[in-house]
């Protein structure tokens, strides 16, 4: 079914490129000739405040996507390394929220009672928070430390209830189904039932929810970096590149357009693909 959908195929191809870039970043930059932190003063005009020489933000044979104003760092290399940051952080955050959301959601839905009360209130509490504001506050008050890990932890801390709530609801319905009763009747214990009987039946929902969560986390990471609380310089990050391009929009629009396009296309591809998967899962269930 996916094969017939050209849009989804294009998305998949683009994502494959981004992932390849992220994985093979050091090799690719060796090929292109410029590292992500390497300065190239010759590529910018110091007398004009550091505007890149040449049209389109200094796009040339040696700098494929042009250069960053002022310091002349190669945009292509920074996009490639920025993909690493985006992908690593969003995948780790998805993994962490996936585990937290599924486990806590199932426990709340299956055991009900006080377990459900505690977990549900915690979820309500976290969901009622203005998450972005709290993320900014927390990240700016925490010491520098290992920024990527901190980002993953903070994003996940506010992200898991959205998955857990859906899982909890589904677990509640599944818990009353015959096969669960049958398992119980044949002597299975609580945890066995939860992980052997209910979890396999939640597969579809988990796959759909997590694929749709990845673009969200990529956006959040870029947003936090844009606001200056993401990964710390000189690490390349798309959000940070967009932030520093803001003041240059009128003299060097490519500095904004390139990372902006990558961020936009990545998020779009993931969303489209997530949507496709949901359709497939729904049809599968119906069939």
């Amino acid at each position: 079914m996916l094969k017939k959908d050209k849009g989804a195929l294009a998305c998949l191809a683009f994502l494959a490129i981004v992932v390849l870039m992220a994985v093979a970043a050091p090799l690719i930059t060796k090929l292109s000739g410029w590292g992500p932190y390497q300065f190239d003063s010759a590529a910018t005009n110091s007398d004009l405040g550091g505007v890149p020489h040449g049209a389109l933000g200094g796009i040339s044979g040696s700098h494929w996507f042009g250069v960053e104003p002022q310091n002349g760092r190669d945009l292509f290399a920074r996009i490639v390394y920025g993909a690493r940051v985006s992908i690593t952080i969003s995948l780790s955050a998805t993994l962490l929220t996936g585990i937290l959301g599924v486990v806590l959601g199932m426990l709340a839905g299956f055991y009900r009672g006080w377990v459900d009360q505690v977990i549900s209130r915690l979820m309500d509490f976290l969901m009622a928070f203005p998450a972005l504001i709290f993320m900014i506050a927390i990240l700016s008050s925490l010491p520098a430390g290992n920024r990527p890990v901190l980002l993953v932890v903070v994003i996940s801390a506010f992200g898991w209830p959205y998955l857990a709530r859906v899982i909890r609801g589904q677990t509640m319905t599944l818990a009353n189904r015959e096969f669960v009763e049958a398992a119980r009747a044949s002597g299975a214990k609580g945890t066995q039932v939860v992980f052997r009987e209910i979890l396999p039946n939640l597969r579809g929902s988990i796959v759909v929810m997590t694929t749709l969560a990845i673009p969200g986390y990529i956006g959040t990471e870029a947003g936090l970096s844009f606001l200056g609380v993401g990964v710390s310089p000189p690490t390349a990050s798309w959000g940070q590149m967009i932030a520093s391009s803001v003041s240059w929009y009128s003299v060097d629009p490519m500095f904004f357009a390139i990372p902006g396009a990558f961020l936009f296309l990545t998020v779009l591809s993931l969303t489209v693909l997530g949507d496709k998967i949901r359709t497939m899962v729904d049809q599968g269930v119906a069939a």
């Binding site: 300065f39 003063s41 910018t44 110091s46 007398d47 405040g49 550091g50 002022q70 310091n71």
Partner: peptide, 15 residues
């Protein structure tokens, strides 16, 4: 220290 790149970081020869 490459003072050219430091100056470029600050805004180039105009600044």
């Amino acid at each position: 220290i490459n003072k050219q790149t430091v100056r470029d970081a600050d805004g180039g020869s105009a600044l």
